[in-house]
Design a protein around this nucleic acid. Structure first.
Length: 909
RNA sequence: GCGGGGGUGGCUGAGCCUGGCCAAAAGCGGCGGACUUAAGAUCCGCUCCUGUAGAGGUUCGAGGGUUCGAAUCCCUUCCCCCGCACCA
């Protein structure tokens, strides 16, 4: 670990009042101290550090609450792991390419680079003021040539591996901006450009693709192993990949030869009563040239986005390869060219959409599958279902299918696929290859040159990076206007050639940035392979659900390719993924357009970063949405102020302790035990909850402990050791979330070093014991209240609490362990129980009656100790002395009511 | 339509996986009390119904089932949210 010296700046003056503490000074001071001591730096020699990562932000200019929440989660976890003794890798960087910078540059007459770096500077400053403990030595900025050259290098490796393809594609094109838009940048049903509201057109363009579909099976199947991921994200990725098993087969269409169709239900082929092709299917386009109806339909009527299935008869017929039957061919808009083969056999009896179309066009609807009858013998051909009103879409038993009648659907599919000549098993995916071409300036230039003789040729590694030219403020793609930049020579033939002007989708940058953090300055490779093998995968990744598919799928894809091509020993990048919830205001997502944005900057200025962080972490579990509440922030701030005041008062000697602060001389009372127990309890629970990232529960324990300490101080002269440990523990439990104040108070307590590097406290109890003890105390207090209220006791004079005799604990334990039929006789086998006579028999009967419900309790000694320790709570509440007694010391008539887990209570009026 | 996640007391929301210590955490709101000249803050309680000694009754969307025992497990059903979708 790094060495450091404790800062020795002058002590900060802190107000001892409800006004709060001087958060600005405290926070600044420790941010500098951490910085000076490089507390968050991970040396390259570290062995397998815990890798905690938040999705790096787009540098839009300012942090918003979503960022603050995201990065507080990772920071808190990183700090917790560090206190647990781990080396922690917790880096930050910038997703710094992207269109907004280009637009901003145009508006402000500057260039994207300057604008982006300004934003980064601002946001980095805000992150530092939040106290996020990043290893800034590993900062990564994707828009620098030092980073994006590796995008180009990786593109080349993908190219060599046959995973890059250039082909024609239909893209969203905004004629006003003169650029391609991603699907998500096209808004609303009217399909308007997100930026200028111009209706988007489609264009055919040569585009570069990464062949992610080659990895479809791997990406899909490995999802099952991603046990640290939320089910929702796993399911979304499965849907996105959308693998389907089915059959391809040919239908002969007059004059057009065989036309391939894909179906998952070849078992229904005897019910195929028409054939349909997409409006942009080659056959449709051929037909349109000679058939006016078809042309009019394609050009005017076809509406693939409408709810109604529309179509036009072609007058052609197709031959059903199973039956030889001639069936009509339609051009229909519900057939999509990018699904399956763009042509389908339609079975109206067993497909709802086909059914609707058949009804509309008056095509025959023929049932060929019947529901499997109850207790079906596997042979009998059942009655046909009524499919006139609605399709029967389940698997079942074939009917009206010639020799196949009587087979179940699954068997029929296998046999038919085998029997039909042109049929073959086929797997279809919804996943498409990833089009990475963008006609924009502010991205990674795709490292290809176009040579008239050699075609598209990759730029050799030694010529990388292909750097962006100066930004030119123009409409369309500034790279198209950069004539000089485009001019180059062909790496293969040396002739004149031009550079590719497309840049890469910024998702390329983010598909491997988590690897760059491992060796951010490496100059001969994107990442140090050995170190990546040691440090990867990311142990805990945190980010918004909006990246469930895109970024998280692309990153998985890259990781797998790097494993196959570059020797990376990991096939998945992120072991545990947390999709954090939204920060809302009055149930609505914060957004600029709604004008309901709460500025993190304002909160930090007004209350401090610790307040903002603590409020967010205790408000809800990290994966849930929660409402921002100014009231909640204030209450959190008051809590921190109380904590500060308490520690200050203690350090200043204003807490009157027993023995005048001399632990040796101080008597240790029951209340001291209570506080010591509660301190342990808080440690036991908070640790486990931090492990689970349920910060809200962990923090509740820490906050409750502070409350307990305050009561302790009010109610007694605290034992110096107990009080000090309580305060010390509270500070450490809060340190991951409220690091600045914790650091300040750590110093106030006279501790050496940083609390950020302090050891996590350990507990001498387990959670079960804590819960039993708390339950016992809470139940007993409630019972006393009940009695006082129900019996109408106004002013109790004394309250006796008597723990059950030892033999009852023994009897209970025997009863729990025993599986004898007659529990009483088993109990009576124990002489010390038998000696109790009627009492033993009576308790034995109780146990027998509730045998299945018996639960372990604390033992008699532990119950006695716990109740004695908690007696002050009852005394305080009822203003009467409380006597906690062992059974042997109490009156028999009272003792008889005591049971394990339930002491006898006697209230003297 | 398919897939995922939900429906808990005045509200928010935990518990459900691993059934019993669950009339059900915590917070908010409301009520009472302490402190204060007062307010705020803080602290102590109460907050389903009945009850003169810790009890009983009725509750966890609805209906049914399993079990000695169900908020928790199973089936059916209704409703809400999210993702995908004329996906062949």
């Amino acid at each position: 670990m790094e060495s450091y010296t404790t800062p020795t700046r002058p002590r900060v003056y802190k107000q001892m009042s409800q006004e709060g503490y001087d958060h600005a000074t405290v926070e600044e001071r420790w941010q500098e101290a951490w910085d000076d001591a490089a507390v968050y730096h991970v040396p390259d020699e570290a062995s397998d550090p815990t890798y905690v990562l938040g999705m790096y932000p787009y540098p839009s200019g300012k942090l918003h609450m979503g960022h603050v929440r995201n990065y507080t989660i990772t920071d808190a976890y990183a700090r917790y792991r560090r206190m647990r003794g781990d080396d922690v890798l917790h880096p930050m960087g910038w997703d710094a390419f992207g269109l907004p910078a280009e637009n901003a540059a145009k508006e402000r007459d500057t260039n994207p680079r300057d604008w982006t770096f300004d934003c980064i500077d601002t946001m980095r400053g805000q992150m530092k003021s939040m106290g996020f403990g990043y290893d800034w030595d590993r900062e990564v900025t994707t828009c620098t040539p030092e980073y994006y050259r590796w995008n180009q290098w990786l593109f080349r490796r993908f190219h060599e591996a046959g995973l890059v393809e250039r082909r024609d594609a239909e893209v969203n094109w905004c004629p006003s901006c003169e650029t391609v838009l991603a699907d998500e940048q096209v808004e609303g049903d009217a399909e308007l450009c997100w930026r200028c509201d111009t209706p988007v057109e489609t264009r055919e363009l040569d585009q570069w693709f990464l062949k992610i579909t080659e990895y479809a099976d791997d990406l899909l199947e490995a999802i099952d192993e991603l046990e640290g991921w939320p089910n929702s994200v796993r399911q979304m990725q499965r849907n996105w990949i959308g693998r389907q098993y089915g059959t391809t087969l040919d239908f002969h269409v007059d004059g057009h030869g065989p036309v391939e169709a894909f179906t998952t239900r070849v078992d229904t082929i005897h019910g195929a009563t028409f054939f349909a092709v997409a409006p942009d299917h080659p056959i449709s386009e051929e037909l349109a040239e000679e058939d006016d109806d078809v042309r009019r339909f394609i050009e005017e009527e076809a509406d693939p986005d409408g709810d109604e299935p529309n179509g036009v008869a072609t007058g052609l017929s197709a031959t059903n390869p199973a039956t030889g039957e001639e069936i009509p061919v339609f051009v229909a808009d519900f057939v999509l060219s990018d699904v399956g083969t763009g042509a389908l056999m339609a079975v109206p009896g067993h497909d709802e959409r086909d059914h609707a179309f058949a009804e509309k066009m008056g095509v025959e609807i023929r049932p060929v599958v019947a529901p499997e009858p109850d207790g079906w013998d596997g042979e009998t051909v059942p009655e046909a279902p009524d499919v006139s009103e609605a399709a029967f879409t389940d698997d079942g038993v074939l009917i009206n299918s010639g020799e196949y009648s009587g087979l179940d659907s699954e068997t029929a599919r296998e046999r038919l696929t085998e029997a039909i000549d042109s049929a073959a098993e086929s797997t279809q995916y919804q996943l498409r290859d990833w089009g990475i071409s963008r006609q924009r300036y502010w991205g990674t230039p795709i490292p290809m040159v176009h040579c008239d003789d050699c075609g598209a040729v990759p730029v050799p590694d030694e010529d990388l990076p292909v750097e962006l030219p100066e930004f030119i403020n123009t409409t369309g793609n500034p790279l198209d206007a950069a004539d000089e930049w485009q001019e180059t020579t062909c790496p293969e033939c040396g002739g004149a050639a031009t550079r590719e002007t497309d840049t890469m989708d910024t998702f390329v940058d983010s598909s491997w940035y988590f690897l760059r953090y491992v060796s951010p300055d490496l100059e001969d490779a994107p990442f140090d392979l050995d170190r990546a093998n040691d440090w990867m995968p990311v142990d805990q990744y945190v980010g918004g659900i909006e990246h469930a598919v895109m970024h998280l799928l692309y990153s998985r894809f890259f990781t797998k390719v790097l494993a196959d091509e570059e020797g990376l020993e990991h096939r998945e990048p992120f072991t545990n993924l947390l999709a954090q919830g939204m920060v809302q205001l009055e149930g609505e997502k914060m957004s600029k357009s709604k004008g309901n944005v709460v500025s993190p900057q304002r909160i930090v200025d007004e209350y401090g970063a610790d307040t903002a962080r603590l409020f967010m972490m205790q408000a809800a579990q990290p994966e849930r949405d929660f409402d921002w509440s100014e009231e909640g922030v204030k209450s959190t701030h008051r809590f921190l102020t109380r904590l500060n005041d308490l520690v200050e008062a203690y350090a200043a000697g204003d807490v009157a302790t027993a023995g005048d602060g001399d632990a040796e001389a101080a008597d240790r009372d029951e209340i001291d035990d209570y506080v010591a127990d509660e301190t342990d309890a808080a440690v036991a629970i908070a640790g486990a909850e931090y492990d689970d990232l349920t910060f809200n529960v962990a923090l509740r324990e820490a906050q409750d402990l502070v409350g307990t300490l305050r009561s302790y101080r009010e109610h007694a002269d605290p034992h110096p050791d107990v009080f000090e440990r309580g305060v010390d523990v509270a500070v450490r439990l809060l340190a991951p979330v409220a690091p600045h104040l914790a650091e300040e108070l750590w110093e106030t307590l006279g501790r050496d070093g940083f609390v950020a590097e302090a050891e996590w406290p350990t507990a001498s109890v387990d959670r079960d014991t804590v819960e039993r003890r708390r339950r016992l105390v809470a139940n007993t207090r409630e019972d006393v209240r009940d009695i006082v209220e129900v019996a109408g006791i106004d002013d109790p004079e004394r309250i006796d609490v008597v723990v059950a005799p030892d033999w009852k604990y023994d009897a209970l334990e025997i009863a729990i362990d025993s599986d004898a039929d007659n529990l009483i006789s088993e109990l009576m086998g124990e002489s010390h129980i038998r000696e109790q006579g009627d009492a033993a028999a009576s308790y034995g009967q109780d146990l027998q009656a509730n045998r299945e419900a018996l639960r372990e309790t604390l033992d008699g000694d532990a119950e006695y100790d716990a109740l004695r320790a908690a007696a002050w709570l009852i005394e305080r509440e009822f203003d009467a002395p409380v006597r906690v007694e062992r059974a042997a010391d109490a009156d028999e008539s009272v003792v008889s009511k005591a049971e394990p887990g339930r002491p006898a209570i006697d209230i003297v009026e």
